[in-house]
């Protein structure tokens, strides 16, 4: 059993908290401190983004953070180093667009990710149909390839995704890009139930979860909740990194208190 699956299993029925930050944002050291705040705030799994120039699954907040990281010279190597620093303490999942894997060389990418202790890889632009070779490579390196399922996915596709999934399934809460939203979709519970019917793999929900109230709602139906854009906004609004980390930690503690 993979470390991710172990983590879900050991949590019993409590929903896991999975905060996201773009690797190297606001800068490499700042990102390290935000990751410390994730740990202090009670994160169960860390999700770390590899900044990409053309992140077409992301809304404006994550896009801007990726561009800022790239402008500051952050590369994949920096992100892997950050992953390695934290993977002793918590499972780490990397979110990476496929061209960053392809350009680096898939085998080399997976080998170095495994060496950094990365537990799972989310590739938002690699749907299951294109992922066969990638998934096989992940399994060889002991990494869980994390597949996404969307509210638009047909029953047939959900079955296919569920059949290939390991670690957890990333359930996209709404048809859209990442970014905080004021309301959750009404159809989220029925969508999750549909996926649940087809698999025993844990389900984590992301895209649009922006406060404790929504996280609490999600936690009634899901095994994990992913929060990204809201955390980046908190960092942006804080003024300096010290305040940003305090705000991130207290936000995560607040969310953690309401997860069931």
């Amino acid at each position: 059993m993979s470390r991710l699956e172990q983590t879900f299993r050991e949590s019993g029925r409590r929903t896991l908290l999975m905060p996201y930050i773009t690797g190297g944002y606001p800068d490499v050291d700042g990102c390290r401190r935000v990751l410390e705040a994730f740990v202090a705030g009670g994160a169960d799994i860390i999700e770390l983004g590899v900044p990409f120039s053309d992140p077409l699954a992301d809304g404006p907040v994550v896009q801007a953070s990726a561009q800022a990281a790239l402008d500051a010279g952050v590369t994949l190597k920096d992100v892997l180093r950050l992953a390695a620093e934290f993977s002793d303490r918590l499972p780490v999942v990397l979110l990476v667009y496929y061209n960053c894997v392809y350009a680096y060389g898939q085998e080399r990418f997976l080998r170095e990710a495994a060496a950094a202790g990365v537990d799972g890889l989310v590739v938002p632009d690699l749907p299951v149909d294109e992922a066969e070779e990638f998934m096989a490579g992940c399994h060889r390196e002991g990494i869980d390839p994390i597949l996404l399922v969307a509210p638009t996915s047909s029953d047939e596709r959900i079955e296919r995704i569920a059949g290939s999934a390991s670690g957890f399934i990333y359930c996209v809460s709404v048809a859209g890009v990442t970014g905080a939203r004021t309301e959750l979709s009404d159809s989220l519970p029925s969508f999750l139930a549909k996926v649940r019917d087809r698999t025993d793999v844990p389900l984590a929900v992301g895209f649009g979860v922006s406060d404790a109230e929504q996280a609490a709602e999600v936690s009634k139906h899901a095994d994990g909740v992913i929060i990204g854009s809201r955390l980046i906004s908190i960092v942006n609004e804080a003024g300096d990194i010290e305040k940003a980390c305090d705000a991130v930690e207290s936000f995560l503690c607040e969310v953690n208190r309401v997860l069931v």
Binding site: L56, P127, V128, L148, A150, S153, I161, G176
Partner: peptide
């Protein structure tokens, strides 16, 4: 190919 988010595939 179709290297695009799952939401779009259907």
């Amino acid at each position: 190919g179709r290297y695009i988010p799952e939401t779009v595939i259907p």
